[in-house]
Amino acid sequence: MWRLVINSGTAESNMALDEAMLIMKEKKTTPNTLRLYTFIPSAVTIGYFQKTNEVVDLDFAREEGISIVRRITGGGAVFHDEYGEITYSVTSTTDYFPSDVQESYREICTGLVYALKEFGVESKFEPINDVTVRGKKISGSAQIRRGHAILQHGTFMYNTDIPKLGRLFKVPKEKLIAHRVNTIFDRVTTLTREVGRTVTREEVIDALKRGFSKAFNSDIMIDRVLGEELDLAKTIEEKYKSQAWNYRR
């Protein structure tokens, strides 16, 4: 039985809770957890190894009141649009998934593929860490392992403001060439765009819950975040608020 946590918060508190859940999982004190959450207000998270000023248009982010937080996971920058994006995180013991990193990405991302199927949208996992629809990215994920615990979190764009996303990120021309596209609009899509109607957050949460349940071959029951997890997250949150962390590269 998996625990389902649905909540929302600032970028700093969201990243702190994911990290706290990973640490608690490492201590084997918490159940395997699927968390579905929203960033309020909208924010950008960048990969652990990225240089903040090289990937984000800092002036535009400032103008839009969009905060920038560095993740503990690698990968690229993500725009967490309050009105059009749901982030998922999976925290579990490593033995639940294949030991091969790439295969574990595939297995976890299958939950997203199943969720999209509920909307009649065919998608596929594309190594290393994307789920695509008609060759366009609709989700990107990032994973970290600590001891025998695994944290994978990722984005699910159901109605993300793509023009804003395009302005926020400095996408190098080589990246567009590598993906054989001309602009970010050819590279990224949303569920709303794919189905031709406005999809709601609630619909997406329901579909993700069922999708992950099917992918993990397990029931998923909604439950609360433990007090210990919240206390630990509160301590970790200070790191995510600091310039030293967010601009360390």
Binding site: F49, Q50, E54, G74, G75, V101, I128, Q143, I144
Partner: peptide, 12 residues
Amino acid sequence: FIISGDFFAYPL
């Protein structure tokens, strides 16, 4: 000395 990028590596 700085290594940066959008790759993955662990343990950090």
